[in-house]
Design a protein around this nucleic acid. Sequence first.
DNA 1: CTACGTATTTGCAACCACTACATATTCGTC
DNA 2: GACGAATATGTAGTGGTTGCAAATACGTAG
Lengths: 191, 191
Amino acid sequence: MVTEAGLRGRKKERTRQSLHDAALRLFLERGFDRVTVAEIAEEAEAAVTTLFKYFPGGKVALVFSHEEDRAAALADAVRNRSADTDPLTAIEDFIGTRLPFDPHMDAASPLLRLIFETPELRAYARQKWTDCEDALMAVLVEQCGYPDDAPLRALARLILQSPDIVARHSTPRAALAMIFANLRRGWQLDT
Amino acid sequence: MVTEAGLRGRKKERTRQSLHDAALRLFLERGFDRVTVAEIAEEAEAAVTTLFKYFPGGKVALVFSHEEDRAAALADAVRNRSADTDPLTAIEDFIGTRLPFDPHMDAASPLLRLIFETPELRAYARQKWTDCEDALMAVLVEQCGYPDDAPLRALARLILQSPDIVARHSTPRAALAMIFANLRRGWQLDT
DNA sequence: CTACGTATTTGCAACCACTACATATTCGTC
DNA sequence: GACGAATATGTAGTGGTTGCAAATACGTAG
């Protein structure tokens, strides 16, 4: 999403950023539930109602400022994969790029710690993945021959759990690979 | 859990039941988020504070009155399985007994419809399963030889998603069997 | 540069889930 | 019947979230 042109657009972006920054600063300083939305608004020099206009997802959404249409991106990644790549590998790669980068550096990242240790935030992050279920299943049905839809829906569901599963792991990518190896063996999609 | 003896115990049970009944009646009549806890308390002739004393889980918990220590029950089911049953089958059977019974009868059940169509309630039901993750992984580690813990944690996670996955299915048990067949092939535990 | 229409912001009041606390009531028991 | 412990109640919050009408700021046409 590109920043709107004009003074208005710039101010909008600045306000959004200001709210996001204020929220992160206060959350990291005091912990998620020791900060009120009123305080965030004040710190960002905005009204509470403005805050909710920018982040309809509420307090939790303030942490995740850069939203993407992940479902569409995931579906694209599978459809436009290179010829020598099977669907599951394309999905694995896609998820891999959305994972915390360096295991040691990121494990120490205060923001990741905050998200990991705050149930509400973790649930939100997880749901952003599971919201892709319908899209993922659609693309699986389209790309893999399979007698029934049910196993593919189950597979989609299980795949979308993997980011949250490996997030607590010390080597997320390795854990992801292990899960995908087992899923591949279990479902045998190939085609 | 057995009802406590004496007048006191009987009244406690009656109050709890009264709150549960009132909540279900109102929820089914108007929908979950069109009912306030104040209304439920009034309908049950109790104070709001009393309501929260009985259901610390809040509004959602009012729907699920009979709580069990599911984690312990699941672990027991695996440990005390008959000699010719493997761990995964024991788990599958356990989950099977906690699923909605008759597919046609239950699909029409207003209560199940309510739970299914109310995100908050579905999330609560799902979490009661996923809360068993640690216990299930512990028992898997104990019962199955496996080089690393990580795949078993992933397996536990995926297994505990299955109840929610198959809940929307027209033939939950068949769907469950299919998922477990794939998981079995994928993880190859067999001991 | 000015005035007007529209997008955005603001403060206010309200709703509701949930909690802390002090007070009252009820049950079991002596 | 009286006393102590468990339970219930009402009140008064806190805090997230929303609706609304008034105020403000931006873009633009004249």
